[in-house]
Design a protein around this nucleic acid. Structure first.
Lengths: 247, 247
DNA sequence: GCCTATTTGTTCGTATGTATC
DNA sequence: AGATACATACGAACAAATAGG
């Protein structure tokens, strides 16, 4: 038997048919079993699995061993407004969500040239590296790595461990207010280690934000690199217009 | 033979070993063939393929039929500053890149409640839907869907088709200046159709920006939803500090 | 709690198609 | 044309998780 019918792989055709069936409402919540689908479409079970893998990667399906394969309901994302005055915990509270932060690990490191440049310190300056996890209403949301000057903020790690909020920790270290100077955004696949910490699918997508916060005198306070789970979060720039999400 | 050695799937172990080999420099540019790897790790070729598929999904590898499997060099991303004054073409030109826009398709539609809300029009108002592709220095970069009031901008489609720039097209329609009111960001996997248009891997990641531009009187001009290829683009918020990318 | 049937996950085997060198 | 390499497809078997009796 020839693997191709007219230039399109058979598993792609099966994937398209399943997608259509879902779109038309013929399949509502749970998919027929792989063996059933294989029989229905007249292909091998592996071919069905390849199609399902592809749709799962698109985020349309979610397979659970021993239970079945389900249609993923589009999750409602939490909204995180970012701008000059960016405060994660405050934003979540405004949406009636409960933010909390957990210290994963901390370390004393020395500034490389990039970090030194961002923080306006000399290369080799002592830094606190703070590795943390944000959980919002029980749902792991993001993973961050922050760097602070160890000389200026000697107690920042302990303060974060106690409060679970960077804003609160900075307040204890004497920073009453700060603002964001720059944010860079991109997206990648989650690493296996992060997938573990974030309790998400091994092929989930993270929005990566690399930012520098400065105090009122425009001196850098921290460099922070955060990976947000893209399917749980939406970043918003502009006026604080808490309107409906999506389009 | 048992599929598991100690709870970890064999293909995961193989994937980890390949990743390490690349990290250590033992594998530099091109992977040994699947048969070689299967023999080396003492597994079936399918198991190697599963491992490679996983690493390719991470973006670490790129398989080319008939040629081989290669280590993907981390590409340098183009920088796109977004803020109140966002201009795609100008930004690319400043980086000595050559932007161009191509009209994929245009259509007259009527505003649903969401679009009507964003554009501050009545639901059912006539709109131009503009489906376009941005190519920067020969590299497809993003795909956008814009909506404009058909009453206010009757010639916007032709103007875009000729200029390949939304800013230029708006200028022809009498909009000398505009600014961005709001931008919402998230990330997803590319769809098969978009992967085709963008000439990218079928499992690539796109940064999705949904924004509203307004004129100087704060009246909405366009609603634009853009999918940027995350591995070719980096979005930057904040002062125009064209420093080094990444961290 | 135990057993069994069902369902997804992994592995190997084999064969053929398609693109590249 | 031939060899090599990745892509697709089918078949068979077993593992692991789940659900139900």
């Amino acid at each position: 038997m020839s693997p191709f019918e007219d230039g399109v792989a058979r598993w792609r055709r099966v994937a398209d048919e399943i997608r259509s069936a879902i779109g038309e409402g013929a399949i509502v919540d749970v998919l027929p079993s792989e063996v059933d689908l294989a029989e229905r479409y007249g292909v091998n079970r592996h071919t069905v699995r390849r199609a399902i893998a592809s749709l799962a990667a698109e985020g349309l399906l979610r397979a659970e061993r021993g239970r079945g394969t389900f249609v993923s309901a589009a999750p409602k994302r939490a909204v995180y407004p970012i701008g000059p005055r960016t405060r994660f915990s405050e934003s979540m509270l405004k949406q009636s969500l409960e933010p909390s932060g957990r210290l994963i690990r901390s370390e004393r490191v020395v500034a490389d040239t990039v970090l030194a440049g961002l923080l306006e310190l000399r290369p080799g300056a002592p830094l606190h590296r703070l590795d943390s996890l944000s959980v919002v209403s029980g749902m792991p949301m993001s993973r961050s790595v922050s760097h602070f000057s160890a000389e200026r903020f000697p107690g920042i790690i302990d303060a974060y461990a106690e409060t679970g909020s960077i804003t609160a920790a900075l307040a204890r270290e004497g920073v009453t207010d700060y603002r964001r100077r720059e944010t860079r955004l991109t997206a990648e696949r989650v690493t296996t280690k992060d997938a573990d910490l974030l309790s998400c699918a091994p092929d989930a997508i993270v929005l990566i934000s690399t930012a520098v916060d400065v105090d009122l005198e425009d001196r850098p306070i921290q460099s922070i690199r955060t990976k947000f789970l893209a399917d749980r979060m939406e970043l918003v720039l502009g006026p604080p217009d808490q309107s409906a999400s999506g389009l």
